[in-house]
Amino acid sequence: MSIDEFYIRLMNEQIDGIISDGAAKKLAAHLMSDPEAERYYEELKDTVRAIDSAVEIEPPPELKTRIFDSVYGRPREEPAAQAAGGRTFWRSFAPVFAAGVAAGFILFAAIRPLTDRTPEDNGYGATIGATGSEKASAKAFDTFGVRGTVLPVFENGSLTVTIELASDVEASVFIEFEGGASFESIRSNEGAAYQMEVDEKSLLLVHHGEADYAIRFRSVETAAVVLRIFTDGKTVAAMRFTAGG
């Protein structure tokens, strides 16, 4: 096979629908001039069509019951370092213990200066009204080399979360949205280098360099948005916004 690897990459990008307009034109011109490349491309498309035509298999209806029987019909697996007795105690008193820890944490957080807080406890929640225009106060963060602010604004049924990232460190912004929220658009300043993946319930933005982003969510009635910023597997900031309702 004497087809240039460059064109094989473009063929795959074309099949996956991620090719740029310029590259698509370049590929089309090449296919017109090289019958071998054209034949290769047709075979590649046939191969992908054959793979995609394979049907999804329905799991048996009893599988869920089997899973539940396995999970809840037997004692839970004990972590190696934990004694069985200690585990039983923990499971019995976990809700009480968790409530105590939460109450202690809230008290501790309230009396401690913000600058002393670690990334794990810089959670920030905001509830924004249902009518007119309203915005919460901006939240700043500066941890693990990632600096910036987050500002949620609710206006005319849309929740816009403006994120300013002023750092050369690669950071990821992971947003999950629920209620009536759906992703509408993202704007960034010119030259911003980022990659983004969006599905029905979440958005992942991988950011490089300094940039501002305005991410807009459409809200039918109420919208809850959980936002986490992290770098190198470490949480920089965790926030939750509720809009409308």
């Binding site: 298999i57 899973i67 839970r76 972590p79 992290f230």
Partner: peptide
């Protein structure tokens, strides 16, 4: 595939406390 799916969800349940939520 049935056995694997069952085993995966049992392990998910058992190890959920160790899952890094970031």
């Amino acid at each position: 595939a049935m056995d694997v799916t069952q085993t995966v969800f049992v392990k998910v349940f058992d190890r959920l406390e160790t899952f890094d939520q970031s």
